[in-house]
């Protein structure tokens, strides 16, 4: 479905602070795959995701969606295929607009927006049903402004917004990182349920090795802009956190500065 061909991106090229965020990254994601991406800070995980949605323009390589080259399409033109949630709950929603207005904007993902009323009674009922399933008790607060909600509530709405229009690929950029452990568990459970119910192809970035092992059907480990390890199916199911750390060292990356962070 999505193919990345030798994707390369360098920040601050030619300067002392030059960072090779992506180096010859090759990755193919098939329909229905749930890929977790693990790696330390600066491994290139977020850059990978931003390149897919078009927020970062790679200097080499191609991005193919169903065989079509979308490498140079602007963000808004590929939006119809991707639903993305960022780490900060403020990034994926509009704080000054209501819950139903945010959901209505997301329900028109990638479509032409004209002069029809955005929140129709039919849509409102759909939203209410979708909110009810989350169990957060927000179904009666459709006209509440987003900014009045907690981080976990906002991230849950962001999750609904990302999945509402059934995107080809769901992209989760450490969407649990800003949440407390209990809320994170709740949002992750809902994420997994939505992904399975709607058979969404998913790419999830995480800092947390245990999460990367626990969720999804494939695991990809990145370091310094390269993919250094992959596992799927039974091989992934057999992975342990200790095993992953060993893989890291086997790959010759003994300078792993934030082991502790990864193990957390």
């Amino acid at each position: 479905m999505l193919t990345l061909e030798s994707l390369t991106k360098t920040f601050f090229a030619g300067e002392a602070s030059e960072v090779r965020a992506l180096e010859d990254v090759e990755l193919t994601i098939g329909d229905g795959d749930f890929v977790t991406v693990i790696g330390s800070n600066g491994a290139g995980k977020s850059t990978l995701l931003k390149a897919i949605v078009g927020l970062v323009r790679p200097e080499a390589g191609r991005i193919l969606l169903d065989g079509r080259d979308i490498t140079s399409d602007p963000v808004h033109r590929r939006a119809g295929w991707f639903g993305r949630i960022a780490q900060d709950p403020n990034d994926s929603t509009c704080a000054g607009m209501t819950i139903e207005e945010n959901l209505a904007m997301a329900s028109k993902r990638g479509r032409v927006r004209g002069l029809r009323r955005a929140v129709t009674p039919v849509l409102r009922e759909n939203f209410r049903a979708a909110l009810k399933e989350t169990g957060l008790g927000l179904e009666g607060r459709l006209e509440t402004r987003m900014g009045l909600l907690s981080g976990g509530q906002r991230q849950t709405i962001a999750l609904l917004m990302a999945t509402l229009a059934n995107p080809r690929l769901l992209l989760l950029d450490e969407h649990l990182a800003a949440l407390d452990p209990k809320t994170a568990e709740l949002v992750m459970g809902l994420t997994d349920r939505l992904v399975r119910e709607r058979r969404l192809t998913t790419l999830m970035i995480t800092h947390n090795m245990a999460d990367a092992i626990r969720w999804g059907s494939r695991l990809v480990m990145m370091h310094r802009g390269r993919i250094i390890f992959e596992a799927a199916g039974a091989a992934k199911a057999a992975l342990t956190v200790e095993g992953l750390v060993r893989k890291f060292h086997e790959a010759g990356h003994r300078d792993l500065a934030d082991d502790r962070l990864l193990l957390s």
Binding site: C94, E101, A104, M105, K108, R109, R111, G114, L115, R116
Partner: peptide
Amino acid sequence: RTDLGLAVRATGENETMIKALG
């Protein structure tokens, strides 16, 4: 309150988000 109107408001509030919605 129309689809376009919401997009115009969101452009001022969270341009990255509304771009990501197409």
